[in-house]
């Protein structure tokens, strides 16, 4: 018999209860149980960072957590960033600077940077590259992502 549990997770402010198999990863829970398909799965071994979400406000690989571990906790995904269809400053800076091409790694990068810019409102390029080293992108060569991040930081500080 499959080992299951009923869990309650607050995802993007919404309380969600589901009965899940205990081996279900957080990434698959978000994508396939809650249909929040913005969180992408790129390697399932914690390297590519495409599945990065915030758990309790802290970035984590959703492929390396089990859904049951989030019982009673808060999770934020890429779907939480925009206000309706209004892009937030980070998203807008990505669009303005061509910080994405195929868009697959983008959600994980946005969540990594959401945490990073919250804690480092005025980063330098080296710090941005350092934090981005936890996310793989095969399209952009990172240059436009770095530019977008610095631009977003400026906007968020009110300097735009």
């Amino acid at each position: 018999m499959a080992d299951t549990r009923t869990i309650t997770v607050t995802v993007n402010g919404r309380v969600c209860s589901r009965e899940v198999e205990t081996r279900l990863t957080l990434a698959d829970f978000l994508r396939h149980e809650l249909n929040l398909t913005g969180t992408h799965v790129g390697c399932e071994h914690g390297v590519c960072g495409a599945c990065t979400v915030l758990v309790g406000g802290v970035s984590a690989r959703a492929c390396l957590m089990l859904a049951v571990q989030c019982d009673g906790r808060e999770v934020a995904t890429v779907e939480s960033l925009a206000d309706g269809d209004e892009l937030n400053p980070l998203q807008q800076a990505f669009r303005d600077n061509h910080g994405l091409q195929c868009g697959f790694c983008t959600p994980g990068i946005l969540m990594t940077l959401t945490e990073f810019l919250r804690d480092h409102p005025d980063p330098g390029e080296a710090e941005v590259r350092d934090v981005l080293s936890g996310n793989l992108c095969r399209c952009t060569g990172y240059q436009a992502i770095v530019a977008a991040t610095l631009d977003a930081a400026k906007r968020m500080r009110g300097g735009a």
Binding site: R31, G38, L87, R95, T106, L110
Partner: peptide
């Protein structure tokens, strides 16, 4: 600016694994 971006940036892309 790219027409593709608003959906991708909001996690609303439709990649093959997003098809249920």
């Amino acid at each position: 600016k790219r027409k593709e971006d608003p959906a991708f940036l909001q996690g609303k892309g439709q990649f093959v694994d997003d098809i249920h």
